[in-house]
Amino acid sequence: MALQGVEQTILRDPALFDPNRHPPPLRHRPHEQPPKPASTLAESRERLALIRGVNLRNNAHAVLSKESFEMRKTYLVSAYQSGAFLKNPDQRGQPPANPMTDPAGMEAMMGMMKGNMMMMIPQTLIMSWINAFFSGFVILKLPFPLTIRFKSMLQSGVMTRDLDVRWVSSLSWYFLNLFGLQSVFGFILGSDNAANHMAQQMSSMNPAAGINPFQPGQDPDKLYQSEAENLEVMEHFCILDGVPERVLRHYADHKSY
């Protein structure tokens, strides 16, 4: 039984406290995959035409007079709706073929299954390896006391009934980090942080050529249609209206330039 009021200590190798022996902290540097650059001009057009619409929507009020805006709006809306920017306009509107019916789809499915199995088997192996490797020793001591209920959470892999709950076993620590930190990262760093694996492919923009607004599997035509709708409901106003008066007033207020 643990003695009440006496702090429990474990005999540790003094070498553990030698700061020179600690491995340098690993830099978190996820290797980023920039989106695959377009391989033909038509593909590049398909990607960037959407950004053009977004630019128009965001910046038109800062630049364009009413006529120029209406002209661009009409052009872009009709081009989006007619699919003029699509890479292959002939395939427009056709749903992606049902993978169950045609043999090529079947093969693709099998490929996917194989891929999944390829993922599953190493996962199982890694899990059992971690279980064997990480179990059986404690890795840190919490600076605050906890009730006995936390024992199962913090000391999995260490079958010691007497050990103070403040000692955390390595297996518990591993799982706590694995499952607990994802949302913490999301909270602190924002939803598109580098530690978030989902967001990895969106980061690192290569100017112009590398940008791809489409997620894999997304139908560009649908995005075009919705962008056309966005543009259609846009009201025009322009900050260039009344800019002379604004400039005069602004400089009258700040004579000290």
């Binding site: 001009l41 038509a42 590049s44 057009r45 960037l48 035409a49 950004i51 053009r52 630019n55 112009a208 050529a209 940008i211």
Partner: peptide, 10 residues
């Protein structure tokens, strides 16, 4: 012009 058709964000 042809280039800008493909890269209208430059």
């Amino acid at each position: 012009n042809k280039l800008l058709e493909a890269v209208p964000t430059d």
